[in-house]
Design a protein around this nucleic acid. Structure first.
Lengths: 228, 228
DNA sequence: GGAACTTGTTGGCGGGGTGTCAACAACAAG
DNA sequence: CTTGTTGTTGACACCCCGCCAACAAGTTCC
């Protein structure tokens, strides 16, 4: 006569448990800065023992890395809109797309990118890689496929631009000091300037490229980055 | 016959000791991220007991704030060069000045601004305030004195630009992926675009403002920022 | 020169967060 | 029911931090 042993805790498949913990972690890391979120908090939020976090994710930093990666994988640009129209139109559409994508993640995106260097080189590396991917997609969409994959300086400048993108989005989402339209305006104008005025000025060897249209560049090989 | 009591430690004036500790902290915080620098490390570096840090600076975070503040107080722009020439020339000179200023601080500047949001709202606030000051000086130097002090959107956009400035400098100093000239080029072109193409487009009420001069806007409440 | 005072400095205590690991319990199979 | 597998727990040890009473380096006064 065993009246249901009444299990004290539920047993989940590793993947399910991992996912559940990850979701809780994402929520909390979005609410307050890294240092303010203890593993105890996350464990409590998920209703599990603290040790389980280490079992599934290793160190707290590793869990945070997973959160960052999850936050940075975004739907491809090229799949949503087709690159037609003037350069300005394409720029504006790509900026629009990025703002849309970010809007869905909201505060967590700001927290993750803002805390950029939680002061951890590894986090920085991951964000940089994601920036490179986004930059490559954007430039490809703009028809400026160029050698973003080959020329380190192009990548570097697009990462610089990414710095402004993040700061702008921070102003928009967190502070509300910029409207979406104003953010759109700023980012579009800046990107146009970079693409048509700055990048062509790079390779100094053969004098200077003419304005208005990107110098004819050979198509680069299709590339696939990303990680899990 | 007391053969010199041989003092076990030297006694310093509060200001001197404070300064010495601060210098050690600046060095260490420049070498590795905030979380990786323990108060024990700083104390050891300074050759004092750990408790002394708390005595002089309070919490570890407070000490870090002092480091950030020290890092961000920079010589005024207007005092070094006079605003003459075309807009482009003035822009290039102000960017040059900023790169010079940053170069002296080097890695520590990158660490401090990069760790921007160590994930601490207070740090973020201080850096934002410093950005605002630098932005105001720059715009004043450019003759675009405008109401950076009154129009929140101007400040917001300049903070966005500041995001790119930091990212660019990071590429230049830390990664070496951009040369100083390339950084200079990128930042100049972007600033010109913002100042002459973006900012004038703001206030939409009365159609559109004419270039080069901002529409007259009423002064906001007098504000006092900064601290020691 | 020594006693008494001021105050810069120390060392240890308690609290909190993190990583590790052996033991345990939920569930499946025999 | 017995056995085996494995997801999960709880506690232990370690490190870092903020606090504070005791201590000692200098100074002043007799």
């Amino acid at each position: 006569m065993s009246p249901a042993p009444a299990p004290r805790w539920k047993r989940l498949e590793p993947d399910a448990r991992r996912e559940q913990i990850l979701e809780c972690a994402m929520r909390l890391f979005g609410e307050r800065p890294y240092a303010q979120v203890s593993t105890t908090d996350i464990a409590k939020e998920a209703g599990v023992a603290r040790g389980l976090l280490n079992h599934y994710f290793g160190q707290k930093r590793d869990l945070y890395l997973k959160v960052v990666k999850r936050m940075l994988l975004m739907p491809g640009l090229e799949e949503k809109v087709s690159p037609t129209g003037t350069l300005r139109q394409r720029v504006e559409r790509s900026v629009e797309w990025y703002l849309d994508t970010v809007a869905t993640h909201g505060k967590t995106y700001v927290a993750v990118t803002g805390a950029g260097s939680i002061a951890d080189p590894e986090v920085e590396r991951i964000i940089s890689a994601a920036d490179d991917v986004a930059a490559a997609k954007t430039l490809e969409f703009l028809g400026m496929k160029v050698e973003v994959g080959s020329d380190a300086r192009h990548r570097a400048m697009m990462r610089s631009y990414a710095g402004m993108v993040k700061a702008t989005i921070r102003e928009w989402i967190r502070g509300g000091t910029l409207s979406r339209e104003e953010a759109h305006l700023l980012l579009s104008e800046a990107l146009i300037t970079i693409v048509q005025d700055v990048l062509p000025q790079l390779t100094p060897p053969q004098g200077r490229a003419e304005r208005g249209d990107a110098p004819a560049v050979k198509q680069g090989a299709p590339r696939e980055k990303d990680e899990g």
